[in-house]
């Protein structure tokens, strides 16, 4: 079966496709969140060292993962938009930034509220924490730069350059706990080793991470639809919507 992928690269087509996908991702996100929260608070055992304080992990780790994943995806689409001049790619990149910034903030915030009881400090200028803070500044820089440039296509290009340069920060965040002597603990979950935690804890964390993925996709799709409408408000297909012509 041949699918013409270029068809979906057209903002007009994507607008309707996204509209049909949003309810699906919303429902799955809510279901996963409910299961994830149930495991986080009622199934996962008490930690032998950290007692109940470790339950912050169920938001902290998914938020930190999302902050890095979303940055890579944002930089990827911004780069595609820069290289091939595909409008939709750049719009998706712009739609990802606020959700990525939100998860970065949450990773830092929950980290502070976990650090205080465990390390005795809300914040330390440690490699992991500092590189994650730089990630937040990269997201904010990307959004501010785009907001400051009136011409959307030029804003896309300028944003893409920041986003691509900032990618260098992602491996720094990820490997910071190995490269430097840090207060932050090493990875509990990795692709090459078996996880260093109880199964129920791991399951809860992974389900919360999946919920965060589904939530992010739903948010990004709605935001992309708004950006499409903003940029294409003078086109024929948007005018058709004004007349109430249904189209699928």
């Amino acid at each position: 079966m041949a699918i013409n992928w270029f068809k979906y690269a057209s903002p007009a087509t994507f607008y309707f496709l996204a509209g049909r996908m949003i309810p699906f991702f919303t429902v799955v996100a809510v279901l996963l969140l409910l299961v994830g929260l149930y495991i986080s608070f009622f199934v996962a055992p008490t930690d032998f060292q950290q007692s109940e304080a470790y339950r912050i992990i169920f938001i902290h780790v998914p938020a930190a993962w999302m902050s890095m994943f979303l940055y890579l995806i944002m930089a990827f689409w911004a780069g595609i938009g820069l290289a091939f001049n595909t409008r939709l790619s750049s719009m998706v990149a712009s739609a990802i930034a606020p959700t990525g910034a939100m998860f970065t903030f949450l990773a830092l915030w929950t980290g502070a509220w976990w650090g205080k009881p465990m390390w005795g400090a809300w914040w330390v200028w440690d490699a992991r924490l500092t590189s994650e803070l730089i990630l937040l500044f990269l997201y904010i820089g990307f959004m501010s730069l785009q907001a400051a440039i009136d011409d959307p296509r030029r804003a896309d290009k300028a944003g893409a350059i920041i986003a691509l340069v900032g990618v260098v920060n992602i491996p720094i965040i990820y490997f910071s706990v190995q490269w430097w002597n840090t207060l932050h603990q090493g990875a509990s979950v990795s692709l090459v080793q078996s996880p260093k935690m109880a199964t129920a804890m791991l399951t809860g964390m992974l389900i919360m991470a999946l919920a965060a993925w589904m939530y992010s996709i739903a948010m990004i799709l709605i935001r992309t639809r708004s950006i499409i409408l903003e940029r294409e408000s003078r086109t024929a297909w948007v005018s058709e919507l004004k007349e109430g012509v249904t189209r699928s």
């Binding site: 008490t46 007692s51 109940e52 304080a53 339950r55 912050i56 938001i59 902290h60 938020a63 606020p98 959700t99 939100m102 903030f105 949450l106 915030w109 929950t110 509220w113 976990w114 205080k116 009881p117 939530y215 948010m219």
Partner: peptide, 24 residues
């Protein structure tokens, strides 16, 4: 009370909830 860590656990979950609701 979360084993005495209630402030920290709920301080984390509460702000996470606010962020998500705010973004939606």
């Amino acid at each position: 009370s979360m084993g005495g860590y209630g402030l920290y656990v709920w301080g984390s979950y509460g702000v996470a909830l606010l962020c998500v609701v705010g973004e939606i």
